[in-house]
Amino acid sequence: MSQAAKKLVVCGGNGFLGSRICKAAVARGFDVTSISRSGTPNWASISSSSTPPPWSNSVSWERADIFSPQTWTPLIKGADYVIHSMGILLEADYKGVLSGKESPISGLRKAFSSSPGYSQNPLERGPSSQSEIHPPNGPRQLTYEMMNRDSAILLAKEAAKEKVGTFCYISASGGAPVLPSRYITTKREAEDTVAREFPEMRPVFIRAPIMYDASRPLTMPLAGMTFVGSLFNGATGGVLNDFLGGAGQKPLKADTVAEAVVEALEDESVKGPVEVPAIEELARKHWRRGML
C-alpha cells in the first residue's frame, strides 16, 4: 500500500523562488498548494515563457490575502509543511510614484526610513476578523515589519494551531549597502519569534543569498556583481561582512535554492538558520539522490 503524498503549502508560491519550490516539490510527488493574492502565476514574469509548464497542472493555485487568515486557514489543514516565501525589498509605494500619486522624494523617504514601520503584532490579535492585519495606507504601502516579519508570524501561528510539523521561512543571508537596515532586522526578528513562540514545529530558516535565473535577465548582472563582492569578501577574510551583507555572499541559481528548500523539508536533521554553504550542500544532496 503506497504512502499518502506529503502535503506542502507555499505562501507566495507564484513568485520567482516560490514557483520553483512548487516545481521541485511536485517532482518529489508532494501534494502542493500555492497561496498568493493573485493565484495563478504570471509565467512571463518568472520564467522564460508565458505558457504554463506541464508541472504546474499538479499545483493547486489558490487566491488569498496573507493578512486575512480566514481566507487561507482552511487551505493549511492537514499540511505536513508550510513555507513562507514572501517579502519586500523596498517599502516605497513604487506604483504610486510611477503614477504620480506620490512624489519620488516621499517614496524614497519611506523606503529608507530608519524608524520602525507600521506593525500589528499577530500574537496579540483576536479570533475571526479581528486577526486581520491592515496596511496603514492601503495595500500598496506595506512595511518591512508587516511583510517580512508579521505575515510570517501570523502564518506560523495558524500553522501551529493546525499541528503542522515543519515551518520554513525564506529569510536572507544579509542586508546590503543599498537597503535599509530594517530589511534584514525584520527578517531576523521573524526567525527569532517563530523559533521561540512555536517550539512544537520544526523551524527551518533558509538564509538565501541573491538569486538569479536566465529567464529573469535583470538578475544576471546583479548576480555577477554579487559574485565579485563575495570573492573580495572571501579574500579579505570577511572583514566587510557587516557592510556588504547579502552582497558579500555567493549568489545562487533560484532552482538551486528551491531544491535545497525541499530537501530541507524532508531532512529532519535540518533545523534553524540554513546559511549559503548549507543551502548548496542540501541542493547537492538532492542532485546526488536523483543520480542514483
Rank of each mutant, 00 (worst) to 15 (best):
S106E: 13
T73Y: 13
L252Q: 07
A254T: 05
V26E: 04
G290E: 04
M291N: 07
I76R: 03
A214M: 10
S58V: 09
K77M: 11
S173E: 05
V9S: 02
A111I: 08
A27D: 07
V164L: 08
M201P: 06
A152C: 09
E132Y: 10
P139V: 11
C22P: 03
K161Y: 09
I88E: 01
D93L: 12
Y212V: 11
N42F: 14
G234I: 15
T226V: 14
C22A: 11
V9H: 02
F16M: 09
V10A: 01
H286W: 02
S36G: 11
A172D: 02
S113R: 10
S85K: 00
S19E: 04
V276C: 02
A156W: 03
V276M: 02
G29C: 13
R109L: 13
L292K: 13
E263G: 06
E145F: 09
T33E: 01
S19I: 06
E280C: 03
E263L: 11
A176K: 02
S215K: 12
I46L: 09
D213Y: 06
W72C: 05
T143G: 04
E132F: 09
D80W: 09
T71S: 15
S173Y: 06
F167M: 14
L265S: 04
E132H: 11
G175A: 13
N57V: 13
E275Q: 05
A4M: 14
N57H: 13
I88H: 02
H134E: 04
Q141K: 12
L240R: 03
R188P: 01
G238T: 12
T71P: 04
K161C: 11
E162W: 06
M1P: 00
P199H: 05
L8E: 02
N241E: 13
K95I: 15
G107V: 08
V59C: 02
S151F: 03
S85L: 02
A172Y: 01
D65Q: 07
L292V: 13
F30A: 03
W43K: 09
K187W: 05
I153H: 00
T71Q: 12
F227W: 15
A258T: 00
G13M: 02
A24F: 01
M146S: 08
L231V: 15
E191N: 03
V59E: 00
D255N: 09
M211F: 05
S48V: 13
A214H: 09
K110V: 06
L265F: 11
P41T: 14
L179W: 11
L123S: 10
G13Q: 01
T186I: 07
S48A: 13
C168A: 15
G224H: 09
N233H: 11
A254R: 00
G245N: 07
P209S: 10
V32D: 00
S173F: 07
N57S: 15
S56V: 14
K157Q: 12
R109K: 15
S106A: 15
E281R: 04
K250F: 08
N241W: 11
P251D: 08
G15H: 01
G12K: 00
T51V: 15
K6P: 03
L108S: 14
I83R: 00
